[in-house]
Amino acid sequence: MILGALLLASALALAPQHETPNEPAVAVSPAAETTATPAESKGPAATESHAEGSTGEAHAGGDEGHGGPSEILMHHVTDQAEYHPFGLPIVFPGKHLFFMLVVMAVVIVAARLAIASYKDGAPRGIGSAVEVMVVYVRDEMAEKSIGHGEGEKYTPLLLSFFFFILFAALFGLLPFTATSTGNLSVTFALAFISFVAQQYAGISNYGVVGHFKNLVPHGLPAPLLLVMIPIEILGMFTKPFALMIRLFANMLAGHMMLTALLMLVALSYPVSAALGIVMIPISIGMALFIMCLEILVAFIQAYVFTLFSAIFIGMYAHPSH
């Protein structure tokens, strides 16, 4: 991780040189020099294969001649229409789509490994870790929020939400990868599925008419209905909307912070070489802190999205609560 950070830092530091090619290449620090020099000698293509997710993009941005800090930052967190996984000569329709599929595969493999670890009805290793979370989602979220017995029906969906969001966030922390849940289109899709599940919960329990009648609490005076009906209909959509924005913003913010902190070196170096060198430990230290925070955030966001989905499903399944 530190190597990746150094690579990014060095590449970012070198980025402005493309705009002023007459200046001699100055290494930011001895550490950066050793990592950056061979990469430079092999050319941008070699750098691509080393650090696609971050460094390569930064370099490519530099190559195209508009590698400003904000652009690099944006490039890091936004999707790409044509993505070359790990610098391979394969075009994939989208960075986030690619990593979404990877994460889905990882989740499926992890779940299968968890099942495989069951010996005599008790899990070992990864199975124990997965089981703790599975049992938590089932008992504390599905059963408690949706209702005993009924929660069972939604447990697989909630588990899929939880593990997908968790693994996507954790996987995105690895070098050269991306967090697909940091894309609004992806969180929109997840929130849409949550929305469908919420409406399904209401409709399957009360029928279409009953479900929409349940939106407004019974026995309200008629004038209040004029206010309550639009509010509740709005509420139907704001619930998944909040899920969508919350997940997106949390996933995005961490990565933006990470990129911005790692760019500190590159941004301060042109001001003064000494400032650039001083920035290296600060930049990496803060980035490391954010990295650790991101691990926490990964769990929190997976928990929050799943819990709120469960609560909303429960709200529509049992409107009296």
Binding site: P44, E48, E52, Q80, A81, E82
Partner: peptide, 9 residues
């Protein structure tokens, strides 16, 4: 070489 043709807006 990645072809970053996607517009960076």
């Amino acid at each position: 070489m990645p072809n970053l043709t996607a517009p960076l807006v």
